[in-house]
């Protein structure tokens, strides 16, 4: 069940790094994406603006989590747990909006 890494050498092998290069690539990607959102915000796309901004932010944070935070290289249980977090937050958001969106309307289900 448990693996004990008392020997630093064995540990070093177990956690082999990905190399400096990939991180720098990801960083370049992140900077470019930042440029993209700032640029798009300047253009007048109205309602779409928030959507695009959130989309770009999601891509950026996915990159950070997958590579910088190693989520992509961890055992699957990490990703499962992360999914639980996302689902929970989505539930909170959806149910909260089932109230605030319909405050002034009559019951839309059995109206």
């Amino acid at each position: 069940m448990q693996h004990e890494h008392h020997d630093p050498a064995a540990h070093e092998q177990a956690l082999h790094g990905l190399g400096y290069g990939i991180y720098i690539l990801i960083w370049i990607g992140l900077v470019v994406l930042t440029g993209v959102t700032v640029a798009i915000a300047g253009v007048d796309v109205r309602q779409l603006a928030v959507l695009v901004a959130m989309l770009v932010a999601s891509v950026k944070s996915t990159l950070v989590m997958a590579y910088f935070m190693h989520l992509k290289y961890e055992p699957p249980v990490f990703r499962w747990m992360f999914l639980v977090l996302l689902v929970t937050f989505a539930i909170f958001m959806i149910l909260l909006f089932s109230d605030v969106l319909f405050r002034s309307s009559p019951n839309v289900l059995f109206g």
Partner: peptide, 22 residues
């Protein structure tokens, strides 16, 4: 259990829709 909190708020002024869902 994470889906039901609104049942404490039927009389609070939350929307009817939310009340029914909860």
């Amino acid at each position: 259990g994470t889906l039901v909190w609104g049942h404490h708020m039927y009389t609070s002024g939350q929307s009817y829709t939310a009340a029914v869902v909860f």
